[in-house]
Write a protein that binds this DNA or RNA. Sequence first.
DNA 1: CGCGCGATTGTA
DNA 2: ACAATCGCGCGT
Length: 164
Amino acid sequence: MRLTADFFNNHVCQVARDLLGKRLVFGKYEGIITETEGYRGADDEASHAYRFTKRSAIMFGPSGRSYVYLIYGMYHCLNIVTEEKDSPSAVLIRGLMLPDIYLSGPGKICRHLGITMKENGIDLLSNHDFYVTEGIVPKEIITTPRIGITKAKDKLWRFLMSLE
DNA sequence: CGCGCGATTGTA
DNA sequence: ACAATCGCGCGT
């Protein structure tokens, strides 16, 4: 069953945690989300939405849309917008378990699935081949600081589920 | 209009 | 430890 606005219209950390074990569908690909990070505007210096910019504008919009950006000039990262409109936030997808391979890291996920800027701003609540559905219930969930950031290192907004 | 740097990854 | 690689975003 596809996840709806009710699922994404909650605090980004709640959604990030709840996304663990859910099934991401992108065209012919289908995998279990195993690792996420939450990012938020205003109170989160590490977030692209700490200030409103052209790039982060999507994070200020309604939830359930994809937010894709290019990092280090060569890797794309996939996020899903959360919370109500004008409450900027998004969940970064960092781990995905496919039937044949485990993708660990946001850049690897987008490279393997073929996700680029063309996939930015897509409504996952209505799109026919890009969405999230129910999956499995995580056995154990671990919380840690986020990876690769220089600011707001104290926030425990990274979530991982045990594999198996 | 110019320039430094990043929510990464693979290689040394 | 560090290079690859380029659009964003902030300062001028």
